[in-house]
């Protein structure tokens, strides 16, 4: 499961990073190898239907985990896990375009998605641009789309893209249903997070454009901050504006105030600057060891402004 990854195997870092060092300290175990946790795993089962997978998972919430690409399981498996539920038998692999948009199977790898023809021109090709910046090909060849959504690392470029693309997450938690992506990430899973079976992207007019900015320390780094904007260019203005910022260091969120300031307006340089400064003000920026709060606000301003300039067809 998972797209990008964790901190060299020290689990739960992302959840507590804002709380400082103390919570992450594992006394006397600097450099622990994960062989002990991984060797607790006794079996891997491969169900063929979502309901079978769900029953297995809910029967033993502590002792089981869903297995997608497996990256995050290798890096983070808690020692309580004895059974992995391999999702590759569910047949949820592949990308198809239909009347309603694009359907992406949860077990599709990020590389497969990157190369899938339906996304090449979707919203101006923004997904291609985003995916090219996720980690390296070595990880994109393993990580799955479903895993990326399930793990939802705070710096996730994939979750950011889903947000601005109004994706729906197809889940199974006793029954199949579709959840809008923002709602999915806003809702705390009660006991067991639902099984993700796919991602659906709505149909878009050919006027849809998207832009993405990522700030990292190196070319294959996770984002210190990332942002994306999508809008439909119609005569005289832009509609259906979506602006989201991630790695703040929290998971990406849309910025409704910034979106509203642009909705229906022409995309001028001045307007872009105004929207960007709203974004910088409202973004939930905080400090972690990679960047300060104020620097993240700066990056938000610059990133959103550059995205909007690109939407307007300017080079920034």
């Amino acid at each position: 499961m998972g797209n990008t990854r964790g901190f060299g195997g020290r689990g739960r870092r992302t959840l507590v990073s804002a709380l400082g060092d103390r919570n992450n300290r594992r006394e006397g175990l600097e450099g622990v190898v994960r062989v002990v946790e991984l060797h607790q795993i006794q079996s891997i089962v491969r169900p063929t239907t979502p309901s079978e997978a769900w029953s297995l998972r809910t029967a033993q919430p502590e002792a089981t985990r869903f297995l997608g690409g497996g990256i995050d399981l290798v890096l983070y498996t808690p020692g309580t896990v004895t059974t992995l539920i391999d999702l590759s038998g569910l047949g949820r692999q592949g990308v198809t375009a239909d009347r309603d948009g694009v359907a992406i199977g949860a077990e599709t790898t990020l590389s497969e998605l990157l190369e899938a023809s339906p996304i090449a021109s979707y919203a101006g090709g923004i997904l291609v641009e985003v995916l090219r910046h996720v980690a390296s090909p070595l990880q994109r060849n393993v990580a799955t789309v479903g895993g990326a959504a399930a793990r939802a690392h705070p710096w996730s470029d994939v979750v950011l893209a889903m947000l601005v693309l109004d994706a729906e997450i197809e889940v199974f938690d006793g029954a199949s249903r579709s959840v809008p992506v923002a709602e999915f990430f806003a809702t705390q899973a009660k006991n067991v997070a639902p099984l993700i079976t796919g991602i659906r992207l709505p149909k878009r007019p050919s006027t849809a454009r998207g832009a993405f900015e990522k700030f990292g320390r190196t070319g294959s780094d996770v984002a210190l901050l990332n942002c994306a904007c999508v809008a439909d260019a119609v005569d005289g203005g832009v509609r259906n504006v979506r602006i989201a910022v991630g790695g703040t260091p929290s998971l990406a969120r849309r910025l409704p105030e910034a979106e509203a300031a642009l909705e229906g307006e022409p995309l001028s340089t001045a307007r872009a600057a105004e929207v960007a400064s709203i974004a910088a003000r409202v973004v939930d920026a905080r400090e972690d060891r990679r960047a300060s709060e104020s620097y993240r606000r700066t990056l938000t301003e610059v990133g959103v402004r550059r995205c909007l300039a690109r939407l307007a067809g300017e080079d920034a």
């Binding site: 990854r5 891997i44 297995l67 497996g70 399981l73 290798v74 391999d86 070595l138 060849n141 393993v142």
Partner: peptide, 18 residues
């Protein structure tokens, strides 16, 4: 790095069972 069904992957991140 090894190739798994023709794709380069990190062998340390792939469970052998997969």
């Amino acid at each position: 790095t090894v190739l798994l069904d023709g794709r380069a992957v990190n062998a340390c991140l792939v469970l052998a069972a997969k």
